[in-house]
Deep mutational scan, measured.
Amino acid sequence: MLDDRARMEAAKKEKVEQILAEFQLQEEDLKKVMRRMQKEMDRGLRLETHEEASVKMLPTYVRSTPEGSEVGDFLSLDLGGTNFRVMLVKVGEGEEGQWSVKTKHQMYSIPEDAMTGTAEMLFDYISECISDFLDKHQMKHKKLPLGFTFSFPVRHEDIDKGILLNWTKGFKASGAEGNNVVGLLRDAIKRRGDFEMDVVAMVNDTVATMISCYYEDHQCEVGMIVGTGCNACYMEEMQNVELVEGDEGRMCVNTEWGAFGDSGELDEFLLEYDRLVDESSANPGQQLYEKLIGGKYMGELVRLVLLRLVDENLLFHGEASEQLRTRGAFETRFVSQVESDTGDRKQIYNILSTLGLRPSTTDCDIVRRACESVSTRAAHMCSAGLAGVINRMRESRSEDVMRITVGVDGSVYKLHPSFKERFHASVRRLTPSCEITFIESEEGSGRGAALVSAVACKKACMLGQ
Rank of each mutant, 00 (worst) to 15 (best):
V182L: 09
R7S: 11
L165N: 15
T362L: 07
V389H: 00
C434A: 13
V427I: 15
T361N: 11
H317L: 09
V277I: 11
F152T: 15
G227M: 03
F269Y: 03
C382V: 11
E67S: 08
A208S: 03
E399W: 01
Y234P: 01
T149V: 15
E242N: 02
T228S: 12
R7I: 14
E128P: 02
E196T: 09
K172G: 10
G264E: 03
M402V: 08
P284M: 06
E70H: 10
P359N: 02
M197H: 12
N350E: 01
M235Q: 00
G81L: 02
R403S: 13
A53W: 00
M8G: 15
S64R: 06
G464V: 06
V226P: 03
K346R: 06
L355E: 03
I130M: 07
E112K: 15
E300P: 01
D4N: 10
I348F: 01
R35T: 11
R377I: 00
K346M: 06
L146C: 12
K140D: 04
M57A: 00
G68W: 07
E399V: 09
A425F: 03
C371E: 00
M107E: 15
R447P: 13
Y234S: 03
V427P: 01
S433Y: 13
E70T: 15
G44I: 02
E14K: 06
D135H: 05
L415G: 12
R46C: 09
E399A: 12
E93C: 12
G294V: 06
T431Y: 00
K172E: 13
A329H: 02
G294N: 04
V207R: 01
F334D: 02
K161F: 05
R325F: 15
R155F: 14
S131W: 06
A11P: 04
R325Q: 10
N180D: 15
R192E: 00
N350C: 02
Y61Q: 09
L25C: 06
E322A: 13
Y349P: 08
E440Q: 00
N179C: 14
R327H: 10
Y349C: 11
T60R: 01
E272M: 14
G410E: 02
P432C: 05
S76W: 05
G92R: 08
E435F: 11
V338R: 01
N166E: 13
V199H: 10
Y214S: 09
V89T: 08
L164D: 15
H141Q: 12
E9C: 14
L309V: 02
R155W: 09
V406I: 14
K420Q: 12
M402T: 13
L146Q: 02
L270I: 13
D409Q: 06
N313K: 04
F195M: 12
V207K: 05
R308K: 06
S76P: 05
F438D: 00
P359A: 10
T49Y: 10
R186W: 06
I404Q: 03
L58I: 11
G117I: 01
Q465Y: 07
F150W: 13
K136W: 04
N313V: 06
M197I: 08
R397S: 14
F152G: 14
G343Y: 02
E67P: 02
D278S: 04
K39A: 11
S340Y: 09
E395Q: 04
Y214G: 13
E256R: 07
D124M: 03
N83E: 14
S441V: 07
G81R: 08
A387S: 09
K142T: 09
E177V: 13
G175I: 14
V89S: 05
Q239S: 06
V91H: 08
M34I: 02
E51Q: 08
T118S: 08
K31M: 15
F74G: 05
S396K: 15
G94L: 10
F133T: 04
S398H: 13
V455A: 13
L184A: 12
G72P: 02
R192Y: 02
V406N: 00
S360G: 06
F148Q: 06
D124C: 05
V101R: 06
K190W: 11
A188E: 02
I351V: 08
E96Y: 14
T255C: 15
A259Q: 04
S445D: 11
L276D: 08
Q239W: 11
I293T: 14
E70Q: 07
E395M: 13
A173Q: 12
L357T: 09
V277L: 15
A329K: 05
E52F: 15
L451W: 11
G162P: 14
E331I: 10
S69T: 10
C461E: 13
E399N: 07
K32T: 07
E331K: 15
E128F: 10
C233R: 01
F423C: 14
D205C: 04
I211D: 00
A320G: 15
V374C: 07
V253S: 01
A53I: 01
V181M: 06
G295S: 14
V310Y: 12
R428S: 13
G229T: 14
Y273V: 13
M251C: 12
T354M: 15
F269C: 09
I293N: 07
T228H: 04
K140C: 07
N254I: 11
A378I: 05
G92E: 08
G285V: 00
N283S: 13
A320Q: 02
M41W: 00
C252P: 09
T362N: 02
T326H: 13
K102N: 00
K15H: 04
A425P: 02
E272D: 09
R429T: 11
E112Y: 09
M37H: 00
P153A: 04
K458W: 05
I366L: 12
Q138N: 11
S174Q: 06
G299L: 00
Q286C: 15
N231M: 02
T228V: 09
M251S: 02
P359I: 15
S131E: 15
G68L: 12
R392K: 07
F419G: 00
Q18W: 15
W167C: 11
D247L: 08
E14Y: 12
D267M: 06
E157D: 14
S100C: 14
G44E: 01
R36V: 08
N283P: 04
G80H: 10
E95P: 13
D311H: 06
F260R: 00
M462L: 12
L271Q: 03
L184Q: 11
I390K: 01
G318Q: 02
I225N: 12
V71W: 02
V222H: 01
D247C: 08
S353I: 07
L134Q: 03
R333T: 02
T332M: 12
S263M: 15
D262A: 15
G175Y: 05
I439K: 11
E395N: 00
V305I: 15
L314C: 10
E421V: 08
K56L: 09
F148K: 08
I189C: 13
A53R: 02
